[in-house]
């Protein structure tokens, strides 16, 4: 074992010794990413409905918001909240400063939430607008009001159809969460950079971080594959009897 390890040009002992720090980093990353996704997702639903229904007042405001947050890098947004807001005495003396904006964790959560909410809004708006006319017309024909039509037909259908695209957003958000390490948070990358800096290493910290992110993405992908199988079964392409005859492989 010792011999095999010595061929790998990595200081594995140092990684192993500090693995508890990496696990803490995993916790920071997951908790920031998924809290942001949860809050951002909840914010996105009403905003997507307002956008899809072309609400006279809200639509242009929300359009402007998503345009700005999708048009600028997450790193810049985080820096503006973390370093930018602190430049104003008004903000430093306000009630917002002490518990919220003075903390790197809150700044990261706010930036990530606003960012993912902007992307999710547009994603969900697309899914709502794309609802097939047949479903909407059937709902109208059976006497559904706009509100009940939205709640019982359009949104459940849109949520389902948004799942594949949303899995990308979740993975992007996870990868985007490395920005937290630039504002002093010890997320996975933050711990990796700590290790490199502490022991003057070139890449041990980065490789460990990369592996951990990879494992998390693997789990996310599995989770979404399960969701798609469960909620998108009705959209899966069915084998026609003719195709089944030509292909002797058993169908799922």
């Amino acid at each position: 074992m010792e011999n095999i390890l010595s061929f790998i040009p990595l200081d594995i002992t140092l990684i192993a010794q500090n693995f508890d720090r990496f696990l803490y980093g995993v916790w920071v990353t997951l908790n920031l990413t998924f809290l942001a996704l949860l809050i951002g997702g909840l914010l996105a639903i009403p905003m997507a409905i307002a956008r899809a229904s072309r609400h006279a007042v809200l639509n242009p405001i929300i359009w402007g918001y998503t345009y700005v947050f999708r048009g600028t890098p997450l790193l810049v947004q985080t820096y503006l909240i973390y370093y930018g807001l602190g430049q104003f005495d008004v903000i430093r003396q306000s009630w917002l400063w002490e518990p919220v904006l003075s903390s790197a964790w809150w700044c990261a959560l706010i930036a990530f939430t606003l960012n993912t909410a902007a992307y999710s809004t547009e994603l969900l708006r697309g899914a709502i607008v794309d609802t097939s006319k047949g479903e909407v017309e059937a709902a109208i024909a059976t006497g559904h009001s706009y509100r009940s039509r939205m709640r019982r037909i359009v949104l459940p259908s849109a949520f389902r159809r948004a799942i594949p695209a949303y899995s990308n957003e979740v993975i992007f958000m996870l990868h985007g969460s490395v920005v937290a390490s630039t504002i002093t948070l010890q997320d996975i990358l933050g711990v990796g950079r700590w290790l490199n800096g502490r022991y003057y290493l070139a890449y041990e910290g980065f490789i460990t971080a990369a592996l951990l992110y990879f494992l998390i993405v693997l789990c996310i992908t599995w989770a979404f594959r399960w969701l798609e199988r469960r909620y998108l079964r009705h959209l899966a392409r069915r084998e026609t009897p003719a195709a089944a005859r030509m292909d002797p492989e058993p169908t799922r």
Binding site: T184, R193, W194, N196, G197, R198, Y200
Partner: peptide
């Protein structure tokens, strides 16, 4: 606060 990777982190 210290700069990362500087001797001061050590």
């Amino acid at each position: 606060g210290v700069q990362r990777g500087a001797t001061h982190q050590c």
